[in-house]
């Protein structure tokens, strides 16, 4: 079943075509990586989908509904979860409260002023923390957590609205190599278990080739390749783009994972 269908998406800044005629689709439970060198338009493409910037033309449909012109919070309502390149959590709250806040809004409780928020949806929050493996840290304030754990908190928050689509912008940026693999492993398991579609951007080719079902390659705002990891790896144009920038260190290495 197709969850996300993007066609001819365009965005330019001044004279620069940041994203030009990008089209792709994403099925439930599928993990799709969006890669490309710096400045290729990955982040722009991402922000077009999550509502942070408005597209010049083209369409993006989530389960048949157009996302164009929607606010991020409206897109969330439809069932889209997000994680950020630099973690964004609520620093004055504990890990559990972070997830509870997302749950409170999911259950439409944020204007309630009578109940004690800390006592609502505790079990649901703990179950989510259990799923991402940080239930033991539930009572610690987010401000003191290690970065890798914060990434997991973000994942738990993003899962609170039972999303059908997860948008993850550089999910493993800033993490230690072993943590990266573990986090993407976890994401892949969650996605397959609940048939959540995942779209992620990533610089670490180990992560990309180990976990993506399909890969999109962007360069100068246009899609230059699309396909299964093996196909993309064999693609001449992709090799040129990456060898040109000297950043393929995972080509041979990635084969072992695949």
């Amino acid at each position: 079943m197709t969850v996300l269908r993007v066609s001819d998406l365009c965005k330019s800044y001044g004279g620069v075509q940041a994203v030009c005629n990008v089209s792709f689709s994403l099925d439930a439970g599928e993990i799709l990586a969006l890669i490309g060198p710096n400045g290729a338009g990955k982040t722009t493409c991402f922000n077009l989908l999550n509502g942070q910037i408005a597209a010049d033309s083209g369409s993006a449909e989530f389960e048949g509904r157009s996302l164009i012109g929607m606010q991020p919070r409206e897109i969330w309502r439809l069932g889209v979860g997000r994680t950020f390149q630099i973690t964004a959590t609520f620093g004055s709250m504990s890990v559990r409260e972070n997830v509870q806040t997302a749950l409170l809004n999911f259950h439409g409780k944020l204007t309630s002023i009578v109940t004690l928020a800390g006592r609502l949806y505790v079990d649901e929050a703990m179950a989510l923390l259990e799923r991402v493996g940080i239930a033991a840290q539930a009572e610690r304030p987010c401000g003191v957590l290690a970065y890798g754990d914060l990434k997991r908190v973000e994942l738990a928050i993003a899962l609170a609205n039972h999303p059908h689509l997860l948008l993850m912008d550089e999910p493993t940026a800033g993490m230690a190599p072993t943590e990266r693999v573990a986090l993407m492993q976890l994401t892949a398991e969650l996605a397959r278990a609940s048939s959540i579609a995942v779209l992620f951007t990533e610089h670490d080719m180990d992560v990309v080739f180990a976990h993506a079902d399909r890969i999109l390659v962007l360069n100068h705002g246009t899609l230059i390749a699309e396909g299964k990891p093996a196909e993309v790896r064999a693609n001449r144009q992709v090799q040129e783009v990456y060898l040109g920038s000297g950043s393929v260190y995972g080509a041979a290495h990635g084969a072992e994972h695949a």
Partner: peptide
């Protein structure tokens, strides 16, 4: 209350 949590959420991280 949940309302207060919503306020603090907006202060701590408007993006999130």
């Amino acid at each position: 209350s949940p309302f207060g949590y919503g306020l603090r959420a907006g202060r701590d991280s408007p993006l999130r």
